[in-house]
Amino acid sequence: MTKGQRAKGKGHSTSATYHLPSTTYQLTIVHLYPREMNIYGDTGNRLVLQKRAEWRGIDVQIKLVGVGDPIPDEADIIVGGGGQDAGQGKIQDDLQEKAETLHQMAEAGVVMLMICGMYQLFGRSFTTHEGEVIQGIGVLPLETVGGHKRMIGNTIYQTPFGEIVGYENHSGVTKLDNPAMAFGTVVKGSGNNGQDGTEGCRIQNVFGTYSHGPVLVKNPAFSDELLRLALSRRYGDAKLKSLDNTMELSAHAIASERPR
């Protein structure tokens, strides 16, 4: 990747931890369906990305994209949350209209983080336990079937970005085409289906997970990896200034010891 297409001037620091000439960098974070798909505090993921970028001097634009709104071309990160059945019903048709754009953006390496309900809809299909098939957009190679057992409680997953703590609450049983595409493996909890030990899915820079919590708030390494991927795509290989993560890691440590 080439550096600095949007960067004004050089200004690259020689510091080992800080290669970004702060104020010249910009990130656009898109929140997809903030009205319809926003239960369990998933909006916190957007806030965490925004603040962790701003605390490093990066200029952040937040764009709320609802039903009928176009996804801005300049999107660097797209986040989507869990929803209620009613919310999922309201967005289904609109999501199909956005499918092609989202596929192209995923191909182009745009960072996406989809939680629970949106994670399911990023797969190919969701079959309810009444047998109704809801079409997904198939960005992620997986299918979900509504189950009768609620998978609920505190979770720990092992991922390439370290241990991730969160909280799951779903009855959808998700099967990946290939378990190697999982985002992580289950240490505590049910993950994708309560059977094969996989949790979530990653294709390109698209991440899907069942983890609420919200997932980014106590897992700063994952948050920073999303920011790094987004900045690298736009500006070339990026390294992030380190932040004080004492509070995040302390909350992480306590959450990992709470009963299921």
Partner: peptide, 9 residues
């Protein structure tokens, strides 16, 4: 409530 996610709302 076992889930503290709601604090982010």
């Amino acid at each position: 409530g076992r889930d503290v996610s709601w604090l982010w709302d």
